[in-house]
Amino acid sequence: MTELVYAILLIPIAILIEGVRRKFIARMHNRDGPPILQPFYDIVKLFGKERYSHGNLIFELVPYLAVICSVFMLLVVPFSIFGFEFDFLLLGYIFILQDTFYIFGALASRSPFAMYASVRELLLMFGYEITFIIVLTLFFYGTGATSFQNYNTEFAFMQLPLVSLFLMFTAFIILRVTPYDVMTAEAEIGAGFFSEYSAKPLAILEIAEFIKDFVVYMLLGFLIVGKTYALILAPVFMIFYVIMLTSSPRYSTIVTAKTFLILALLAFADIVFLVI
């Protein structure tokens, strides 16, 4: 129960990190950018907006399911530090589940932009979700841990350099960072999955995304550098991905799909290499 309270207290921090991220992006763009509290203002305003439904029951349910997934992720990663025993593969499942919910919501909205976003996501899932699961497995196989709680390795990137690199690669897609963010390519498919969402559901979806991003930053710190540095390193990884986001254009869908299929194959090869 204490863990849940902590997790809920961490939600504002996740939103604050997004505010800092926007500020960093703006500074990279050579502009002032919004205030750090802007995501809070956005969410409060979205909650008060007039609302129209553009889909069926699944469409309505998806934001709530997505935010539940996100809070669950928050329980898995940071709170294993304080003692909440989860199997590590569970995290991989939650990530896949959340993406699947997004795809269902997008397909239920009958928007062509959302539809193309979900088609792209499905295409890329074969590459990056498989890699993500393999990478998680390899981290725990390589270090001998069985759950997040008893993962005590520090500076795992020295021991598992390739696996760390693969994890950072998959984070590009999970965080929707260029050059691999085809499913939210604004110029082609509008807002992607979220094209038809508005008002309260959109606010909830945004919260879910902010939490997921925060968890990914934490996870990178947790797995690659060690659990004592996880919270400190979250902003560092955030800045790293902001630099990537602002300094690179977007690859086309086909190139992205090929890259991640090759990555999945390399991850498979890495299993063979590590096991033998």
Binding site: I25, M28, H29, N30, R31, T178, P179, D181, A185, E186, A187, T246, S247, S248, P249, R250
Partner: peptide, 16 residues
Amino acid sequence: MAHEIGLETLFMYYMR
């Protein structure tokens, strides 16, 4: 043109 391929930074620099 830079904005269309997701390179917002170049867009901002050109606007500057």
